[in-house]
């Protein structure tokens, strides 16, 4: 069961075969998805009709590629915008939370920490509907009371950002806290001993130390935001982000265009993940 324990050879081989099969299972849906982005056919299925770049660069009906398909491009733009907003907010709040939970002792801290973890275990769809209900309660109250119509409180980009932020902030807090926990507090004391005031010590010593974790949290938050469906689905307005736009397309029937988008997503996500690994390595 560990390399030093003599093991039956058949068992050993069976185990390795199993692990290999597992990785095949992991890779299979992604691999077929990617391959059919290049099928010169209207449908992402066999038979293979030859290789084409048209689903990326084609500009004539019926094979309009991703880069000429305006709604998809717009959806990608929306997704990026939402992702950047959510990640920025999440990293800021995650950092303040990390300091709060690591550096202060206060009444109700354990309870607050428990509350802070909750968004991870509340089903995403519920976070979505509760924010939907609450924001429309406010909007209705504003209209009833002052005859103000606040468009931003209706389903749309703002609500999507808030909805995604409501649970991604927990993730960012956990990532940044974990790093802050390993920080040697005497370094700050040394900085203060050398003439820095408390804030300068944090700015020049602690924050640079946290930086890799903040970058990591930003990327994790961005990827989570980009791929989120459940919460977004309940809060989306007319400006649909990419996952929602793809879902609507998929309901109408699939074309290799969706495979092409999928492949681009895979490449983009992997690139971000690699950047993150590189940043984490440097620490």
């Amino acid at each position: 069961m560990i390399p030093t324990i003599p093991q039956n050879r058949t068992m050993d081989i069976a185990f390795k075969v199993y692990v290999t099969l597992f990785f095949v299972y992991l890779a299979l849906p992604l691999a077929v998805n990617a391959v059919f982005a290049f099928n010169d056919s209207q449908f992402p299925s066999l038979p293979w009709k030859g290789f084409t770049w048209n689903w990326f660069f084609g500009d004539a009906h019926p094979m309009i590629g991703v880069f000429h398909e305006r709604p998809i491009l717009r959806a990608i733009g929306t997704s990026i915008f939402i992702g950047v907003c959510v990640s920025t907010l999440a990293v800021i709040v995650g950092t303040t939370n990390a300091f709060l939970f690591n550096r202060y002792r206060f009444k109700g801290k354990e309870f607050l920490y428990f509350l802070m973890l909750l968004p991870l275990v509340i089903p995403g769809i519920l976070l979505g509907v509760s924010i939907l209900v609450f924001s429309s309660s406010i909007a209705n109250a504003m209209w009833d009371g002052f005859k103000w119509d606040i468009e931003a409180l209706r389903p749309g980009v703002l609500l999507v950002v808030l909805g995604q932020f409501s649970f991604i902030a927990t993730m960012a807090t956990l990532v940044i806290s974990a790093r802050l926990k390993t920080f040697d507090k005497t370094l700050e004391e040394a900085a203060m001993n050398l003439g820095a005031d408390a804030l300068t010590a944090i700015r020049t010593i602690t924050l640079p130390y946290l930086f890799p974790a903040m970058i990591g949290a930003f990327i994790v938050a961005f990827l989570m935001s980009f791929e989120n469906f459940n919460t977004t689905f309940m809060l989306v307005g007319s400006d649909a982000p990419l996952t929602i736009a793809m879902f609507d397309r998929l309901k109408e029937g699939s074309t290799p265009l969706l495979n092409a988008v999928s492949l681009l997503l895979m490449v983009g996500s992997s690139a971000l993940a690699l950047i993150m690994i590189a940043v984490q390595r440097k620490k």
Partner: peptide, 9 residues
């Protein structure tokens, strides 16, 4: 790291 939609697709 890829959308659940992509995996399901």
């Amino acid at each position: 790291w890829v959308s659940e939609l992509v995996r399901t697709f």
